[in-house]
């Protein structure tokens, strides 16, 4: 929760424009994430939520605009370098390495860290996700959807990120699992990880977030404290079913 006073800005995104070929997908999006917060980006399908996260993580390059992490400009830096700064993205659709074992997937997550820190990081992840420990030697492609989501999150945590970005962690999961995943997100945040959460499940996302931004076709349309956004009539009508 945002008790750090004065709030220290961890991630600052300023007026970014992103194109896919000639399609103008992100049209001047600005937002910020302060240390210790859970910030959520919500919006309809195709609003540009994933594009925004992929741009912040370095997979896509903005045509203009600025992105700073801890005050450092990261535009133009490769995704593989950005991880090392302390920012990890758990991508949409999980994208675990299907043909590699659970353990190997986690080891890949710790790729940017020195060898001697890997064992400790593995222990931490196994403690948070005991299920992954049970499946340590299993090939990731044989895991259930919920287990794959845990693996994807565990893999992102292996780099010991200050900022963890989660893209649709609830997608395709049974309601009970969704609740479990959101509980874990809350625990991670209380343990000191700042969270940037992209969700279609707006209700769930707003219920755990400190602040929220609503994205509509490439632009931020509404922003504010999560509880205010949750109460906003426009948001209720558009994303929460009235």
């Amino acid at each position: 929760m945002s008790e750090a006073n004065p709030a220290k800005v961890l991630l600052q995104v300023h007026e970014i424009h992103v194109y896919y070929g000639s399609i103008h997908a992100i049209k001047g999006v600005s937002f910020e994430v302060n240390e210790g917060e859970i910030v959520t980006l919500i919006g309809a399908n195709g609003a540009g939520k994933s594009t925004t996260l992929n741009t912040v993580s370095g997979l896509l390059k903005p045509r203009s605009g600025g992105i700073t992490f801890e005050g450092r400009n990261i535009v133009g830096m490769s995704a593989s370098k950005i991880v090392g700064l302390g920012m990890a993205l758990c991508p949409e659709g999980r994208r675990v390495f299907q043909q590699m074992t659970v353990r190997e997937n986690l080891e890949m997550g710790g790729f940017s860290r020195p060898k001697e820190e890997i064992a400790g990081a593995l222990d931490n992840v196994f403690q948070r996700f005991p299920r992954l420990k049970e499946r340590e030697k299993q090939v990731a492609g044989t895991l259930s959807g919920g287990e794959q989501q845990m693996l994807a999150m565990g893999r992102a945590l292996m780099s010991k990120p200050k900022l963890l970005m989660l893209d649709e962690p609830s997608m395709g999961l049974a309601p009970i699992l969704v609740e479990q995943i959101f509980d874990i997100i809350g625990e991670l945040n209380r343990a000191g990880t700042t969270i940037l959460l992209v969700e279609q499940n707006a209700q769930m996302a707003l219920s755990i977030a400190d602040r929220a931004y609503v994205l509509g076709t490439g632009k931020i349309t509404i922003s504010g404290d999560a509880k205010d956004v949750l109460a906003d009539d426009r948001v209720r009508a558009a994303y929460l079913g009235g």
């Binding site: 370095g58 991508p91 994208r95 390495f97 590699m100 190997e104 080891e107 890949m108």
Partner: peptide, 24 residues
């Protein structure tokens, strides 16, 4: 080896591998 595993990761999913910090 770390490099060998990274090769397998890249062969499965370049984007995800890049997100792990692997220089593709």
């Amino acid at each position: 080896t770390k490099m060998g595993k990274a090769m397998r990761a890249v062969s499965e999913d370049k984007g995800a591998a890049e997100l792990m910090g692997i220089n593709v």
